[in-house]
């Protein structure tokens, strides 16, 4: 198969020219080949992670990675922590709940503190859009965005692209329906950017109250009717619906949402017969997705996404620290 999203290594420019960014703050900064460069690098780590007992590579030995999570997270934090440790780095986790952020310290001051501790990479999650960029501008080491407000969650989009590529053999020319609370979702924004950039037809299927404005400017078609939106889709990407959206402000009730927008086996029949179903987790079973779909290994990629998450984050940590590590060609 000829595919521009699966490239031979010789296709990329040599050394640091293949990925010129100091930080990973969003998909918006990336080119299509930079995305596939990360995906190709991640493939290598998938193999390592599956290789039994010795899942270890010590290329980041001696480096300190700080996971600064200003917003609660279990899986993303764990994923970054495992990724860093598998690469041999010293990983430190900072939870906002235990930190001076609660004591009124400003975000910039916190960033300067982390910087003074000579971290070699900082992974940040924050509840406010743009917070990661703000920190990235102030520190000397690479910053990885692990989710900022409703802005971006780039490693999620990368792991989703990798999952699609491995399942369907390519991640271009596909029809991908992103369904649910797109308005409040950074996962949706990063995925829309990445998947349109790679040459897919992206649809947004959401209640009118949860569809962001000016979607057409992001080159996606919007649907409020789920059956219509799923028609002939290769990929159905579900989003988590936060409980607080279902209290009447955006949606009348969880029950109504499930009836109109829940992914049921009947609905999934509108999509292509071999369509895959994705979910960034954690799932609300019985609200946005039925258990029978979530647990069907032929359709659901949910656990595979988690697996790809570790590999993609290993790839990102490796690539972004090459300059400090003095990898030849990366200066």
């Amino acid at each position: 198969m000829t595919s521009s999203t699966i490239r031979p290594a010789s296709d990329y420019p040599p050394g640091g020219d293949a990925f010129r960014h100091r930080h990973l703050t969003g998909i918006a900064q990336l080119t299509p080949w930079e995305i596939s460069y990360i995906l190709d690098a991640a493939e290598e780590w998938v193999e390592l992670n599956r290789s039994g007992a010795a899942k270890h590579d010590d290329r980041l030995a001696g480096l300190t990675i700080i996971n600064a999570f200003f917003e609660n997270s279990t899986r993303t934090l764990l994923s970054f922590e495992i990724a860093g440790k598998r690469l041999g780095a010293d990983v430190v986790n900072m939870h906002a709940a235990q930190s001076s952020v609660k004591k009124g310290e400003t975000l910039i001051d916190t960033a300067m503190t982390l910087n003074a501790m000579r971290a070699d990479a900082i992974v940040i999650r924050h509840a406010s859009s743009g917070a990661v960029q703000l920190i990235a501008d102030k520190v000397d080491c690479p910053v990885l965005n692990a989710g900022d407000g409703r802005h971006e969650h780039p490693t999620q989009a990368l792991l989703d692209a990798l999952t699609i590529r491995r399942r369907l053999g390519r991640v271009e020319g596909l029809t991908i329906a992103i369904c649910g609370d797109v308005l409040h979702s950074r996962v949706a924004r990063s995925n829309i950017l990445a998947l349109t950039l790679l040459g897919n037809e992206v649809r947004v299927v959401a209640p009118a109250t949860l569809t962001p404005p000016a979607m057409e400017r992001m080159h996606v078609a919007t649907f409020t009717d789920m059956d219509e939106g799923l028609k002939d889709a290769d990929v159905v990407m579900m989003l988590r619906l936060q409980n607080e959206r279902m209290d009447g402000a955006y949606l009348p009730s969880a029950r109504e949402y499930h009836t109109l927008y829940g992914l049921t086996p009947q609905r999934l029949e509108k999509a292509k017969p071999d369509a895959i179903v994705m979910h960034p987790g954690p799932m609300n079973r019985g609200v946005e997705i039925d258990s029978s779909i979530a647990d069907d290994p032929a359709r659901s990629t949910i656990t595979e996404q988690v697996e790809m998450g570790v590999a993609v984050r290993m790839a990102c940590l490796d690539i972004l620290t090459r300059r400090q590590r003095g990898v030849p060609g990366w200066n």
Partner: peptide, 15 residues
């Protein structure tokens, strides 16, 4: 203000 910019940046916007 509602529009491409607010949507891309993930900022809450109003018409």
């Amino acid at each position: 203000t509602d529009g491409e910019m607010a949507t891309r940046l993930g900022l809450a916007s109003a018409p």
